[in-house]
Simulated scan of single mutants.
Amino acid sequence: MRDLALIFAIALGAALVVGLAGALLLRLLRRSPITVHLSVLLTTTVVAVVLGVVAVAEAMFLSPHDLEVVLITVGAAAAVSLAVGGHFGRRLAAAAVWTEQARERERQLEKGRRDLVAWVSHDLRTPLAGLRAMAEALEDRVVRDPETVGEYHRRIRLETDRMTRLVDDLFELSRINAGALRLSMTAVPLGEVVSDVLASTAPLAAARRIKLVAAESGWPIVTASEPELTRVVANLLLNAVRYTPDDGTVRIEAGRERDHAWLAVADTCGGIPPADLPRLFDVAFRGEPARTPGTGDDSGGASGGLGLAIVHGLVEAHGGRVEVGNTTDGCRFVIRLAAL
């Protein structure tokens, strides 16, 4: 028993020395990745075992041959342990990175939801207050002349239509985010879609003397769902018209590159701050100054702050992508879809 106790004490002493050194090293490397921590832990364990074996062997007066056999055995076991530990260390590191990315995505989604609720609350509260004021004025006969009464009725209809569009946009966005969007893919002539959208947008552009310029040829045929593609083109064109100053120009053109088609909408809005470009397709993002339709905007497009998010979601649902960049006097949106 005395010999066993002595062996235990020697092995324990060697393990404590190495363990304290490993603990100090881990403290110094506390900001390092988890793979480094695991490597230090495994190495400390192996060194403690080797040092304990050597100390006990010296105390027991083992022959050099026997000590060499023991060390070879311990070394083989250590190599396997380090290899297995390194493999699991990499997996743990990858899992930690994935978990952190998932948490960051969840934080971004939660922030997006809060921003959306705040944005929708503001955009509903403002027209509702106006509707209430006009309704009370009509009810209390504060306004009596037919021209003012007719204007109040027109504004009530316009604000009601705008809130209806906002609700429709929210429903469309919820379908996209929930993966409930079902596309009926067919061969769609891009030129016909653009022609229809230009016809519906022309009155708004004419009211502000904005020139709509469309390419005369080169319109490819794309594989898409026509209603959703029309929504994409309409949102891009109306977005360009809204933020282009009076007497400006909006250009729309398209082409084909190998197996995909592209459509570009360029305006003369003066450009977008570079810091805002990566967030331009976020829900309810408007940038500075706020990208909000003016009071005279009677268009039937997507509500400000949702239109580009809907474009991004619909284009991605088609397996395409949308890009934006600044030009000399404005910005240029480009969508890319599969072509026939």
Rank of each mutant, 00 (worst) to 15 (best):
A95G: 05
L173P: 03
V197N: 02
R157F: 09
V117H: 08
D161Y: 07
S200N: 08
L138G: 07
T148S: 05
S184W: 00
G130C: 04
L190A: 03
V149W: 02
T148N: 01
I156R: 04
R114N: 11
A96F: 06
L181Y: 06
D123L: 06
V194D: 00
T164V: 02
L158T: 09
L204M: 11
P127K: 15
V149P: 12
G179A: 04
R103K: 14
D168F: 05
V188L: 00
R141N: 10
T164A: 06
A180W: 08
L181A: 08
L158E: 05
F171L: 13
M185E: 11
V194T: 03
R107I: 14
E136A: 09
T201G: 05
E147N: 02
L138S: 13
E139W: 13
R165P: 02
E192D: 13
G191Q: 12
V97E: 02
V193G: 11
L138H: 07
M185D: 02
L158I: 07
L181D: 05
S200K: 14
V142S: 11
N177S: 13
R103P: 03
T164P: 00
G179D: 04
H153Y: 14
I156V: 14
E159L: 13
R157S: 12
L170A: 03
A187L: 13
G130E: 12
M163N: 15
R132F: 14
H153R: 15
E147C: 00
V117W: 02
A199M: 01
L198S: 01
R162C: 01
G150K: 09
V117K: 00
